[in-house]
Structures are given as structure tokens and as C-alpha cells.
């Protein structure tokens, strides 16, 4: 009698341990712990600050209701930063992904040189947001820089890249595309995961290179493409360093990325409350865009696991 109880108990414990809910939470425990301890409070705090008049110097947050949000509507620089950021995201992300996929695909050929080549293309990403590289980039687009030297040689005259508010964003976009290494590496890993048997089957069926690429490579890679799309979109929204180091947001706020404006408000103009309000508005914008990506992804992402 006792024995069976014990076994039932241990059986039910085992059952409990193996139930989806338990397993799920056990494996997710590191994240849940970190989220509750280190992320949740800062996130909620920033939400609270967005309804206050709070500067880092004074330390006292005075509740002001929705005043910060109302102020956003009339802030010309905020509206401009929103437009600039969206433009940056919509141009740089597709370019970067297409480029990363192209290079990753190009470099899956069977060749000893591939490792060398991939390193060559990856190095720019390693130097990341360093000041040194930002300086080089600034130099390339300077009035007497490499780009203008080439343009002059072609007889096209020079372009004042950083003097024109409509042009100044493009060097920054180009720099972001140039640092496509992490996306490329992830694509490369994804390409490697595609079972060889698929390609062999396609070959037997007489498919050519293009067909193989569109019928096998792309669908198999689609979860990775989705991943890179979502992550690069989010990080493009957060882009800060390049604008901060190279243009400081100018000329005429033509490169005032929203993260830079948040920084200026929080740290330069000492209006943390306003910076938080701005961040939350952008969080909503970002969430909507991410949601749209997820909803549409159901149409083009091919999933092995379903769910």
C-alpha cells in the first residue's frame, strides 16, 4: 500500500517534471529570471518617467500626465527624426539583407579560398561602431574624400555629402550596409543547414541554378531570412553610433536618428521624461512594424516544425 503511494507520488512528480508547462518554464528560467530582475523594472521605470518631468540632474520626477506626449506632436525635430529613421530603416535593411545573402551565397562555393574571402568580407563588421572607422567613413565622404575624387575623375563634379540634408543620410546608410557581417554569417550557417539531399533530388529532376535557388535555397532559408529581417529592422531603429560620431544629427537635422534625439534629450538637454515618452512612442511604432512582418511572414516562411 505504502509502496504504491510512493510510486504514484514519484510517478506524478515525474509526470509533473515532464509536462510541457514545467519543461518550458525550466528551460526558459534563465530568461525569466533575468527579465524580471534586470529588465522589467527599468522598462516600467522608463514608462513611468514618460509621464513625468524628470531630469537626471534634479532626480525628482514630477508627474505631468500626458504633457510629454502632447509636446511630441508639436516638436518639429521629433517629426523629422521619425521620418529620417523610417527612411533609414526602409532603405538600409533590405539592402543589407540582400547584400548579406548574396555574399553568403556567393561564398558557399567549394573553394579553399572561401574562408579567406569570407574573412575579408567579415572584417568590416568586426570593427563595428569604433570611432576609428567612423572617422574613416567621414573622410571618404569629405569634400576632398575618395568618393568626390572618383566623381571628379568621371567629370561629374563634387558632392557636398554632409552639407546637404537630403544627401547626408546616404553615407550613414551605406556604412550600415557595409557592416553586414553578422547577417552574412547567420545566412551562411543557414545555408549549411540545408540538407544536401534536397539539392541532389533537384539535380535529378533537372533543375538549373536559378530554380534551385528559388525553389530550395530560399524556402529552406526563410526562417533565417525572417529572423534577420526582424532583428535588423529593430537594430536599424536603434541606430545611434554612426550619426552620433559622424554627423551629430546635422545638417539641419537631416540625420537626426531617433535614438540620437533620445540621447540628446536625455543627456544633453536633460529632459529624461521627454526622452522616455519618445522612446515609448517609437516602441509602439516598432511593435507595429514587427507585427506586420510576423503576420505577413506566415505567407512566405517555410517551417519544418510548424507551430
Amino acid at each position: 500500500m505504502k509502496n504504491t503511494l510512493a510510486t504514484t507520488k514519484s510517478y506524478s512528480f515525474k509526470k509533473f517534471m515532464n509536462s510541457n508547462n514545467t519543461v518550458g518554464h525550466i528551460f526558459a528560467a534563465p530568461f525569466i529570471f533575468g527579465f524580471i530582475c534586470f529588465s522589467l523594472i527599468p522598462i516600467l521605470t522608463s514608462f513611468y518617467y514618460s509621464f513625468t518631468d524628470y531630469s537626471l540632474g534634479s532626480k525628482e520626477a514630477v508627474f505631468v500626465g500626458i504633457r510629454n506626449f502632447a509636446k511630441l506632436l508639436t516638436d518639429e525635430v521629433f517629426v523629422k527624426s521619425l521620418v529620417v529613421t523610417l527612411k533609414y530603416v526602409f532603405i538600409s535593411v533590405p539592402l543589407k539583407l540582400a547584400f548579406a545573402l548574396f555574399v553568403a551565397f556567393l561564398l558557399t562555393r567549394k573553394s579553399r579560398l572561401v574562408t579567406v574571402y569570407r574573412s575579408l568580407y567579415y572584417v568590416p563588421s568586426l570593427v563595428g561602431g569604433s570611432i576609428a572607422v567612423a572617422l574613416v567613413w567621414k573622410q571618404l565622404f569629405a569634400r576632398k574624400g575618395l568618393f568626390n575624387a572618383v566623381l571628379t575623375d568621371m567629370g561629374l563634379g563634387t558632392i557636398n555629402w554632409f552639407g546637404d540634408e537630403t544627401l547626408a543620410l546616404y553615407p550613414l546608410i551605406l556604412m550600415s550596409v557595409w557592416q553586414f557581417g553578422s547577417s552574412m554569417i547567420i545566412f551562411a550557417a543557414g545555408l549549411k543547414e540545408i540538407p544536401v539531399s534536397y539539392y541532389e533530388a533537384a539535380k535529378i529532376d533537372g533543375a538549373n541554378g536559378f530554380q534551385t535557388f528559388f525553389k530550395i535555397t530560399l524556402p529552406c532559408l526563410s526562417p533565417i531570412i525572417l529572423y534577420n529581417l526582424v532583428m535588423q529592422t529593430i537594430s536599424a531603429f536603434m541606430a545611434f553610433t554612426q550619426a552620433f560620431v559622424i554627423t551629430k544629427g546635422g545638417p539641419n537635422n537631416g540625420t537626426m536618428m531617433y535614438a540620437l534625439y533620445v540621447y540628446n534629450q536625455a543627456f544633453k538637454y536633460n529632459d529624461m521624461g521627454y526622452a522616455c515618452a519618445m522612446s515609448w512612442v517609437m516602441l509602439v511604432v516598432m511593435s507595429i512594424i514587427t507585427l506586420v512582418i510576423f503576420k505577413t511572414s506566415k505567407m512566405w516562411v517555410f517551417s519544418e516544425a510548424g507551430d
Binding site: 567621414k138 555629402w161 554632409f162 546637404d164 546635422g250 545638417p251
Partner: peptide
């Protein structure tokens, strides 16, 4: 210097 040129001075 205009805004662009001024930016080159670091």
C-alpha cells in the same frame, strides 16, 4: 564653412 564642411572639423 557650411554645415557639411564644418562637420569635417573634428
Amino acid at each position: 564653412p557650411d554645415a557639411g564642411a564644418a562637420m569635417e572639423v573634428t
